[in-house]
Design a protein around this nucleic acid. Structure first.
Lengths: 228, 228
DNA sequence: CGCCGTATTGAGCGCTCTCAAGCTAGGTGG
DNA sequence: CCACCTAGCTTGAGAGCGCTCAATACGGCG
């Protein structure tokens, strides 16, 4: 464990993981079982297919994508994980990681060993409830992939993104998209060209304004109406 | 609660839910908190959007689809649930059900009140582990939706179906598809016509044989190779 | 400033959709 | 028992959305 001070205000486990030194040895705190904080460079690999599942990870900083490759080399992206979110719940069932997790920017994660975590749950009803809540939350990810057209999928994606990045943005009307067009395309089962064209169309219709990786929402309501 | 004898060999909770009369009052058993067994006719509605989440459901008999409607009236199907599987985990996070669940055939479900269930978890570490395992399992559903073409999606769907229906089929080389072409199409983001044509193509290529709702797998290996 | 990966834009193709017409199976009533 | 009816499935023809391939523009970084 690093000893430098650590701030995790947006972490979904923060209330169970006091980082004050005085609390470090409290066996009911999550940080008592944290194995390590891992620094990962952009494009670095956190986990890969067939890696034995022993821990899941709380993203402290940065963004990750999880994906599997199909035979043609397409990255079938399952999800994106932002700072504060937890990665790896799927592998509790599969035993081995069935996907790769790669950092989209320099990142830091907290490694939480699953067996130790289960022990902790027995003594911490509140944490148990929290954990189940977070797993349920993950079942609600990826709904934007369900829509039928490129317009709907991208509009829903942008809205989802704006909600999940909210802790890190000064206003909900502007976000910085942390992944490439290619990643968005792989996630939404489109091509980068279609994503780019749809962005341009939204901009032409004055729904958004694009400045490189920044997106300003000009008419959030109308963007909503595209998909629901 | 009904008093008729009940058999749930394939239920994912069966080992925690003794239905012997002698066990009925064991407060550590799941059946001590079951609220009711509900019989639902084909096309019957188990839950609908904005219904308050209080219970989840173990499917005892039959098959369900969960879906939300988009503005154009498309059923965006999220998942199918077969006998033995658990439905409703998503709503722990959302508080209200955000989707509809409709029976595809006459069905029976066990209603499990969530608050009581949480109480039970505190005293039942094994059940807790089991529950987390099942939630993780659900995170691994729907992977066939990720593939890029109609061929891959349908092939992956058929293989997934054959695995999940295994407890109810004499051989893994033959299944009875419990949902309509329209439902499959909605699930895979295709049209019924495309689903039908792709079935026909697979049959023409001697990968499967279709007899109405029955599908015989002639070359399961080659079907696999279509998508991975 | 120049390089290279990424993003945008364009043109044409093809997979999937739309619309429409038969076909099949299962249910109903005479 | 059979004719009919209806919903669901299959098949066909043509259209269109998104893909492929290609050229150009942009932007981050040395």
């Amino acid at each position: 464990m690093q000893t430098e001070p650590f701030f995790c205000p947006s972490c979904q486990f923060s209330s169970f993981c006091e980082t004050e030194d005085s609390q470090r040895s409290d066996p009911k705190q999550l940080n008592s079982i944290l194995k390590q904080r891992i620094r990962i460079k952009k494009r670095g690999v956190l986990c890969a297919p067939n890696h034995k599942f022993r821990s899941f990870y709380a993203v402290n900083k940065g963004t990750f994508k999880t994906f599997q490759m199909d035979q043609d080399g397409n990255e079938l992206i399952r999800n994106f994980y932002f700072a504060g979110e937890i990665l790896g719940f799927e592998a509790i069932y599969t035993q081995n990681y069935s996907f790769s997790a790669v950092a989209l920017s320099d990142a830091i994660v907290c490694e939480i060993p699953y067996e130790n975590f289960l022990d902790l749950l027995h003594h911490q009803c509140a944490l148990q409830k929290r954990f189940i809540y977070l797993m349920s939350q993950q079942l609600n990810l990826g709904l934007c992939q369900n829509y039928t057209t490129a317009d709907k999928r991208l509009a829903a994606f942008l809205v989802d993104l704006s909600l999940r990045l909210q802790p890190f943005t000064p206003t909900i009307y502007e976000i910085t998209i942390p992944m490439s067009r290619q990643d968005i395309a792989n996630y939404l089962r489109l091509t980068p060209e279609t994503v780019s064209r749809t962005f341009s169309k939204f901009q032409k219709n004055k729904l958004i304004k694009i400045i490189n990786k920044k997106v300003k929402f000009l008419k959030l309501k109308e963007l909503h109406e595209i998909f629901e």
